[in-house]
Nucleic acid binder design. Structure first.
Lengths: 229, 229
DNA sequence: TTTTCGCCTTGACTTAGGTCAAGGGCAAGG
DNA sequence: CCTTGCCCTTGACCTAAGTCAAGGCGAAAA
């Protein structure tokens, strides 16, 4: 069997905890395995615990009545989700499902809450984690309402390029359809804007592989939110 | 002088704390008074503490380069803000300024963080508070991207009506211009939609006073996100 | 190799809502 | 009382982006 402690140690949320504290955490964790494209939970369900991604990829999203999807987050190894339901004492505020075959760790609510009480550093880690997420949401709202789609796309590409640390080359880790949903638009629009940005020599697109050709131009687009002539 | 302990006791964040704990909190709190329309902090400033509204009203907002404003929250007595900068260890992610003359309590970062460490219930309160705020953001993003402006307005009116508990009468606590910015639109559009909703006999508008005339209709509008012919 | 199936792209068209410009109304101050 | 200023409303117009419909392309299956 894989070494659960090794996984736990690599998770930012559990950084700085002692071996015995990690041991306690391991004792309440449960493994959950999902194939690609499976529902983990749905908005409105009782939140009886939260999850950490050990491997794979997960999307957190909202659906409108007509079936349009807005992705709120895409999480990979080391990220956690579902805490909001645990700490607010309410139901899950959004849906979660896997984008890839995934190995998740599940932490039951009551056991975890009692762990926190005697564990200030875990608590501070959690506060930091939720704060970072709030910060991300402010950026997302800014992007969605103060920028047009080209500006949002430019921000996202620059963000990815930072993450991946591969110079000017980057790979969208997700399908273009999912990217459209993350950016608050639809595949047709995304497709058109990618080709506009290619014509403007800002980027070069080959499937999911993208090369940044004019970083400053992208940066300006991301800031102003508009794709000038 | 006003009784600070009495104020602290009324704040949700400090609910369930003992008198001695409240005493510690009082000891690190600092009063801050602001006139209407004053800046409390700006996006990007160092976050050296957080605030609680004792009286008055505060908006948290983002600005685009061209000066368009998106309001993220409007906070009144009992609400806190600025924690994100404190716990994430980063700068303020948005701007804050007063909508009314306000009395705020300021909690310096380092003093407050050390208070938390020995105080599990305060910590759980904070986790609950941040979680509720994350939940609100998911709703806000859903509204902004999956609903059209009439749907967002309908949601907001129903929400206000719940808050105020005055049956079908309610009062926008803010100017229509500010409301437009909160809903992710502009005053002209808001104005047009208010009159469309009046013509459709969903509501009756008299300045900032609004009467709900067709609650079910509003509810449907809020859910579907579209104002049908 | 050929077929199939998802996913992506492209084109023509529609529309929600933003922009620009011109008043209207009400409250505060002279 | 009149004036000033602010906020709100209304109208005409424009544009970003959504909808609908038709292919195209590449990977996996046959």
């Amino acid at each position: 069997m894989h070494n659960m402690l090794k996984i736990l140690r690599s998770i930012p949320l559990f950084q700085g905890l002692s071996e015995s504290q990690l041991g306690q955490i391991r004792d309440i964790a449960r493994d959950k395995l999902y194939d690609k494209g499976k529902e983990i939970f749905a908005e409105g369900e009782e939140g009886d615990g939260f999850y950490v991604v050990a491997s794979g990829q997960v999307k957190i999203y909202k659906l409108s009545l007509e079936g349009k999807e807005q992705i709120l987050h895409i999480y990979g190894p080391g990220n956690s989700f579902g805490e909001v339901a645990v700490f607010s004492g309410k139901r899950f505020p959004a849906n979660a499902s896997t984008l890839l075959k995934s190995h998740l760790l599940f932490f039951p609510r009551t056991a975890f809450v009692s762990l926190i009480s005697g564990n200030p550093s875990l608590c501070l880690n959690l506060l930091a984690d939720l704060s970072m997420r709030l910060r991300q949401f402010t950026v997302q709202i800014e992007n969605l309402t103060l920028k047009e789609v080209p500006g949002r796309l430019a921000s996202y590409l620059l963000y990815l390029s930072d993450e991946e640390e591969q110079g000017d080359r980057l790979s969208l880790g997700i399908s273009k359809g999912q990217l459209a949903s993350l950016l608050g638009t639809i595949p047709e629009t995304l497709s058109r804007i990618l080709s506009r940005m290619s014509s403007a020599d800002l980027i070069e697109v080959k499937g999911k592989e993208i090369t940044i050709r004019d970083r400053d131009g992208l940066q300006e687009l991301a800031e102003t939110g508009k794709l000038g002539g």
